[in-house]
Simulated scan of single mutants.
Amino acid sequence: MNSAYVFSWCIVGLAAMASATSEGEAEPTCFSRFDYDYKMLQKLVSLEQTIQNLKDSLAESKNKIEDMSREYELTTKNLQDLLSQTKENIESGSVYIRWGRNECQDNAEIVYKGFTAGKKWNDGGSGGDTICLPEDPSWLNYSTINSPRGTVYGTEINIEEPSGVFEKKVLDQNLPCVACHVKKSSVIMIPGRGHCYTNWNLEYNGYLMADKHSHPTPHNHVCVDHHPDFMQGGGKNNDDHILYLTISKCGSLPCPPYANDRELACVVCSK
């Protein structure tokens, strides 16, 4: 290396030493151009590594943000679907008949009040189901021509008193009914139980009733409230559409869990 070149860098080093000494710093040593270039190269390499680390960190953060964004969108969609389904269930709801009562539970609204009715017990025809006729009928066309028709009668309970089942005397009493709307997606009547299963809500409970087993034609089972209301002016033995308690019979029906000649309970549950 040229001696003049080295000497000039020593002069630079001595000038830097004088400046550092005036500021109370350690005295620098004389260095060559090679030392200077090497140190600068080290700094550049360190700076480049720092920049690369920042780029890697930014890329990682970007990926995390994108993952969080996708997760947020999925969660939002699931919540919107759940909200929509819940709203649909609440707005639609379900309807059931509460047999033997004039009022619905507090959690349900009345669709209409009415009278329990059906075919006469010894008629071979007409409908076989028990129906809830509204107390405020409206008519379309009607005729007084005497031609074959089905018939429908009001309903009364036939049971020996004291029954030991109902809390009050019910013999020959005419039964009301009420249609109830509940803001639940499902409603079920469970025969043979007086209580709902877990996670189901009680609407009402009572006793399973139908026609007498020896009558010529049947009608369907209904769940009559355990504490029934009665229609005003009822109590006469008209022997029209009659409901009887239903009992279990052992044999093909396993006993236990069932018992012979025991009145079956029933419950209406919603969810």
Rank of each mutant, 00 (worst) to 15 (best):
N2R: 11
S3F: 04
L14D: 15
L14T: 14
A15E: 12
S19Q: 14
T21W: 05
E27I: 10
T29G: 13
F31T: 15
F34I: 06
Y36F: 09
D37L: 14
M40R: 15
L44Q: 13
S46K: 14
L47A: 14
Q49Y: 08
S57R: 09
N63H: 11
N63R: 12
K64Y: 07
I65Q: 12
E66F: 02
E66H: 04
E66T: 14
M68W: 06
E71G: 08
E71H: 08
N78F: 03
Q80F: 07
S84W: 03
S84E: 12
T86W: 05
E88H: 10
N89K: 09
S92R: 15
G93L: 04
R98Y: 06
R98C: 05
W99I: 04
G100A: 08
R101D: 10
N102M: 12
N102F: 09
E103D: 15
V111Y: 00
V111C: 01
G114A: 03
F115G: 00
A117M: 04
K119A: 10
K120H: 12
G124C: 12
D129N: 15
D129K: 14
C132S: 06
E135D: 12
D136F: 04
L140T: 13
N141K: 14
T144L: 11
S147Y: 11
S147H: 12
T151L: 08
Y153L: 05
I159G: 00
E161L: 02
S163G: 15
Q173T: 01
S186V: 15
S186N: 15
P191A: 07
P191G: 06
R193V: 00
H195V: 11
C196W: 00
N201W: 00
N205T: 02
N205F: 00
H215G: 08
N220K: 09
N220L: 02
V222R: 01
H227C: 03
D229I: 00
G233K: 04
G235V: 01
N237G: 07
N238H: 14
N238A: 09
D239R: 14
D239P: 02
H241G: 03
I242R: 07
I242A: 01
I242L: 12
L243I: 13
Y244K: 08
Y244I: 02
T246Y: 01
S252M: 09
P254C: 05
A265H: 03
C266P: 04
C269R: 03
